[in-house]
């Protein structure tokens, strides 16, 4: 029996991008888009898992699923170059799927048709930062999930032991039986670099373009603003002893935060 691993991918502004406004909207002109950094961990874990299962004699296919405008296909190609086998692009040039509710509806619909045995996703996308879409996809698929996974160890053909990062550097440890969805945190792995043959093969892999299913957004963003700029920094001069004493005084008496 062939096994199918899904990877949810998002095409997002590089974390080094500056975000500017044009009127009331986000100005996208100078933004460079990349695969969401957390999704890289999801891709790598999918490839590692495939390698393990292939060694065990299974047939395994990794399918990348990406919702976004036409340009988002670049992230699918980048994922192909490291080992994702084929892609499904849910085309949304009109940005109708703008929040966790609508995006999870669309992704769940496509995932349901693919009948994945296992789904990986990044723990959050670094643009909308909802930290919710993958869990919502899992729930819509009636699939169990564990989020923010930094370690995944296969203990049997269909079960894994996973570690989930929570507050204070603590980890919750679970066993999970497939079918399941896992979201990846930094620390899980580091995505391999694409090889030359990988890059060559990437251009030939199949991307199936599908229209955005009917979705219902839960909210709209009514206005954007940039975070307020702070006043000019107050530099504290003098000998180190004086500087330290003065800073403590200012934090206590002026800023009143200590």
């Amino acid at each position: 029996m062939a096994l199918k691993i899904g990877v949810l991918l998002k095409h997002v502004p590089d974390t080094n991008s500056r975000i500017q406004l044009k009127g009331e909207m986000i100005d996208e002109t100078d933004i460079k888009y990349v695969i969401n950094p957390y999704d890289e961990f999801a891709i790598e874990e999918a490839i590692k898992t495939k390698d393990l299962w292939v060694k065990g004699g299974e047939q395994v296919e990794i399918v990348g699923i990406c919702l976004g405008p036409t340009a988002a296909q670049k992230s699918l190609r980048d994922a192909f170059a490291v080992g994702v086998d084929r892609g499904i692009h849910i085309l949304d040039n009109d940005k109708k799927a703008i929040d966790a509710r609508s995006v999870s509806q669309a992704l769940a619909k496509v995932c349901a048709e693919e009948k994945f045995n296992l789904i990986f996703a990044g723990k959050q996308a670094v643009d909308t930062d909802a930290h919710a879409v993958a869990q919502m996809v899992a729930e819509r698929l009636k699939m169990p999930h564990i989020a923010v996974v930094s370690k995944c160890e296969w203990t049997g053909a269909t079960s894994a032991k996973v570690e989930r990062d929570i507050e204070g550097g603590m980890k919750e440890i679970y066993t999970v039986k497939m079918p399941a969805l896992l979201t990846a945190n930094k620390g899980l792995n580091k995505m391999r670099l694409a090889s030359l043959p990988g890059i060559r093969a990437a251009s030939k892999k199949e991307i199936k373009e599908v229209p955005l299913p009917e979705v219902k957004a839960g909210y709209k963003v009514k206005g954007w603003s940039l975070p307020p700029e702070r006043g000019k920094v107050k530099l504290i001069e003098g000998e180190p002893e004086k500087q330290a004493a003065e800073l403590v005084r200012l934090l206590h008496e002026e800023a009143k935060v200590v």
Binding site: D99, A100, R101, S104, D129, A130, H131, A132, V133, Q135, M136, V137, A138, E139, R140, H145, A147, V148, R164, D165, I166, E167, K216, A217, G218, Y219
Partner: peptide
């Protein structure tokens, strides 16, 4: 809260109840 628990469980509930979610 947008905590480890809140971010996970409330997202799950939002999908289950198909409710809008504004996170964090």
């Amino acid at each position: 809260n947008a905590s480890s628990l809140g971010k996970d469980l409330i997202a799950k509930m939002a999908a289950r109840l198909d409710a809008p979610l504004a996170a964090d």
